[in-house]
Design a protein around this nucleic acid. Structure first.
Length: 185
DNA sequence: AAAGAGTCCAACCGCGACCAG
DNA sequence: CCTGGTCGCGGTTGGACTCTT
């Protein structure tokens, strides 16, 4: 009887692994990605014998195993960038992450929730912002509405398209930052 | 030193987009 | 077109860690 229950538990456990990844699992996943590339997560999940779902494999790779991942605290520049991009794009974390080399969407999302949203809350409680800020915010809001498609100004729309076309850009440089700051000011 | 509160971050979940058949 | 499978994204959760009392 008890044995049967144990068996049940084992098979249930065998179905799909959950929770924290072990070093061994990481190693297997990294090997699989080397073979298949960072795509075909379903294939990777099944061929490695990890008993993880494809989603889980993808997440682990994207947020932890991927090369060039930057760890540690955000620099002032990065923080400022996140704030500006969030103003412009809203909760488009993957898009924001795309402009911060080595940072993941998950990391930025977490950082925003634990640090920046509180910072903003505090600053909003304080003295109302200067006229300059409201001016730039107005500009940003106009751009934002363009992104969501609610504004039809073709000039601004094409500017934004240009701005977010990074196909020819080296992602490891932060040259685009100045471009962005110019754009917002 | 211990307990409770607060914070951080890795991982999971649900949903929508995309694509091949 | 429709459908099923897969992927990617954003929101949420849970547990480990740190801080405060």
């Amino acid at each position: 009887m008890a044995l049967r229950n144990v068996e049940k538990l084992i098979t249930a456990k065998k179905e799909i692994n959950r929770g924290a990844w072990t070093v061994e699992e990481d190693r297997k996943l990294a090997e699989a990605v080397e073979i298949h590339g960072p795509k075909q997560w379903k294939t990777i999940a099944t061929t490695t014998g990890l008993n993880r779902c494809g989603k889980s494999c993808r997440l682990r790779w994207m947020n932890y195993l991927r090369p060039n991942i930057k760890r540690g605290s955000m620099s002032d520049q990065e923080e400022d960038l996140i704030l500006r991009l969030h103003k412009l794009l809203g909760n488009r974390w993957s898009l924001i992450a795309g402009r911060l080399p080595g940072r993941t969407d998950n990391e930025i999302k977490n950082y925003w929730k634990s640090h920046l949203s509180k910072k903003i809350e505090k600053s909003n409680e304080g003295i109302s912002r200067k006229e300059e800020d409201s001016k730039s915010e107005e500009k940003i809001n106009t751009s934002k509405s363009t992104v969501t498609g609610s504004s039809e100004d073709p000039k601004i729309s094409s500017d934004l398209d240009d701005f977010f076309d990074f196909s020819n850009e080296n992602p490891s440089t932060l040259e685009w930052v100045s471009k962005f700051v110019d754009f917002c000011s």
